[in-house]
Computed example of a mutant assay.
Amino acid sequence: MPLPLPNLTSSRHPVSDHCDGRRFFNPAGLPPAGLKAIWDWRRSADPAAWPERFESPFPPDAPPERVTGERLRLSHIGHSGNLLQTAGVNVLVDPHFSARCSPSQRFGPMRHAEPGIAFAALPPIDVVLVSHSHYDHMDRATLTRLHDDHRPRFVVPLGVDRIVRGWRRKARIEAYDWHERAELGEKLSVTLWPAHHWSARGVFDRRKTLWASFALQTPAGFVFHAGDTGFNAGRDFAAAREAFGPAALAVLPIGAYEPRAIMKPQHQEPDEAVRAARLLEAALAVGVHWGYWQLTDEAIDDPLRRLEAALSRWSHPPERFVAARPGMVVELPAAIDAAATVRLVREDAQAAG
């Protein structure tokens, strides 16, 4: 049976340029598609066939216990989930270790690859960042297990704290609005940054909780983790560059974008992701949110083909924007061999096709 949803009907939040006190919205942006439009799409959708398995060319990662000094290590778990280690602090962003992204493990999208890190192989987790409440980014089983095994700090957008506290009353959780900053450790902080998206766990709680990207200031430089977002003319990326300087690393979604009439307000496509990396002046960008769960209509390797075309269109060096697969590791300041990564991912996609 689906898990019960928290009661958010009485939620109250500060009135702002992105909240009317009850619901959040994208200022000067597009609203999400309505329920009727989504229903019509689902009834008539003809999604591309995905292979049953699309395993990563990278072996499962075995992260070190800590990363110190001015180094940073990022390991891709799958979809938008990443382990970020720097300044002696271990941070999980949008972790998801369940087989399905759904209210129930009996139905809903099944993952097409194993996580890039086994849950048992995680180092001690200090902080968990959750970008928003959608099931592919916020998994109850994963978060409750992390609480039980690691007792981390949860840093989340406004309203998401109520959901997590409904699962684990004693969770160490802090909720923030856009532009608010949390100190995570010495020389390590995160600012919740505007994203062009929405939120829901069910039909009646749409936009009752906030969504956000993460701007991390680290010893290795500025790291931008988009979480989930539409492009929205690049406004939020340009503003982040203005606020924090050029990004040493940008983690950007490149998948779940078709049909555009439904997905444009919430999911950018690869050409927009390349433009986002350029607006952030990212030394290295990593494309996520593809090839893990089939959420939309495009083929499993279409994001990779479109990314290659976009890099050529914008004359952007391909070694500076790589498509992530589970188990892939990025290390700063010495970055991964991006050319080898592109080759491995391309060969894997061709084999799946």
Rank of each mutant, 00 (worst) to 15 (best):
L5H: 07
H13G: 07
D17R: 03
R23T: 15
F25M: 10
L30G: 07
P32A: 05
G34C: 05
W39N: 07
A45P: 04
P47N: 13
A48I: 04
A49G: 01
E55D: 15
S56K: 09
P57A: 08
F58D: 02
F58L: 06
P63T: 13
P63A: 00
E65H: 11
E70T: 14
R71I: 01
R73Y: 00
R73S: 14
I77W: 05
I77D: 12
H79E: 11
H79D: 13
S80M: 08
N82L: 08
N82R: 00
L83M: 01
Q85N: 07
N90I: 03
V91K: 09
D94H: 05
D94N: 15
H96P: 02
A99S: 04
S102P: 00
P103D: 01
Q105T: 01
F107V: 07
H112P: 07
H112N: 10
A113P: 00
E114W: 00
A118P: 02
P124M: 04
P124F: 09
D126I: 05
V127Y: 12
H132T: 02
H134C: 00
D136C: 13
D136R: 08
R140Y: 01
T144D: 03
H150V: 07
R151N: 15
F154G: 10
P157M: 06
L158R: 12
D161Q: 12
I163L: 13
I163V: 09
R165I: 01
W167R: 12
I173C: 06
H179Y: 15
H179P: 02
H179E: 06
L184K: 05
L184F: 03
E186M: 03
L192W: 10
A195H: 07
H196M: 09
A200H: 04
G202P: 11
D205F: 13
K208D: 01
T209D: 01
T209R: 08
W211S: 13
T218Q: 06
P219V: 08
P219K: 08
F222C: 05
F224L: 13
H225Q: 12
G227E: 08
T229D: 04
N232D: 15
F237D: 08
F237I: 04
A238L: 12
A238E: 14
A239Y: 01
A240D: 06
A240P: 12
E242D: 14
E242I: 04
A243T: 13
G245K: 09
A250H: 02
G255C: 03
H267Q: 12
Q268V: 09
E269A: 14
E272A: 11
A276V: 14
A276M: 06
A277D: 03
R278T: 06
W290G: 03
W290D: 03
G291A: 14
Q294C: 08
T296R: 13
A299S: 12
D302E: 15
P303T: 12
P303C: 01
R305C: 02
L307I: 00
S312W: 05
P317Q: 07
F321E: 10
V322W: 07
A324Y: 02
R325W: 06
P333A: 10
P333S: 01
A334P: 04
I336W: 00
D337T: 08
A339F: 05
L344M: 14
R346P: 01
E347L: 13
E347M: 08
Q350M: 10
Q350V: 08
A351T: 15
